[in-house]
């Protein structure tokens, strides 16, 4: 499966939860598949989906899911020790590991070669790291959201993209409606 197929499959699972979504195609796809006020779309700042979601999870009690990419986690690897050492049960980090920088044309990442993000996350001190194949993600993600333990999911999938438009919503509007959803 490719990322857009995965997002289609998990949309019903995440639609009522706070979601911070990675820059580029992941956000564009989620926006097209199931736009929700509970979605925070990153329009820039590659690498910080996990950090933004984690800060949000620490600041309030609702479950938070960061949808991240392998390339973005690699660019902000320092995030994993921070998350591991300040674990909060309402946080789930979903790394869609397609082994490539998808949004920029599927250039290979090191995660698709020798580097295992599952092993990296574990070595960083994360206690609940689950590596899962794309088709098996749904139940694993649901269990992670339901559990009161923080979970890091590394979802292995194929690289590949669909054609779709950019998000034209203003960033302040994205933030405003997201904050209202957080507070409601």
């Amino acid at each position: 499966m490719i990322r857009s197929e995965i997002l289609k499959e998990i949309a019903p699972i995440i639609r009522d939860h706070l979601v911070v979504c990675n820059i580029g195609l992941p956000s564009q796809e989620l926006h097209m598949i199931d736009d929700q006020p509970t979605n925070f779309y990153m329009l820039g700042t590659m690498g910080l989906s996990s950090s933004i979601g984690f800060g949000l999870a620490l600041a309030q009690d609702k479950p938070v899911i960061s949808i991240d990419g392998d390339g973005s986690v690699l660019t902000n690897l320092g995030t994993l020790p921070t998350i591991a050492n300040n674990a909060t049960g309402n946080y789930t980090l979903l790394i869609i590991d397609n082994g490539s920088y998808g949004s920029t044309g599927d250039q290979p990442t090191y995660a698709g070669r020798k580097t295992s993000l599952t092993a990296v996350a574990t070595a960083c001190g994360c206690e609940n790291v689950v590596e899962v194949q794309d088709k098996d993600l749904g139940p694993v993600l649901q269990a992670a959201i339901d559990s009161d333990q923080m979970t890091i999911i590394v979802c292995k999938c194929d690289s590949g993209n669909i054609k779709l438009p950019v998000i034209t919503m203003d960033p302040v509007v994205i933030k405003h409606r997201f904050m209202q959803a957080v507070a409601s």
């Binding site: 911070v20 700042t45 933004i52 979601g53 800060g55 949000l56 600041a59 309030q60």
Partner: peptide, 10 residues
Amino acid sequence: GLCAGAFMGG
């Protein structure tokens, strides 16, 4: 990034 998330969390 952490600060941005915390801010949106109130």
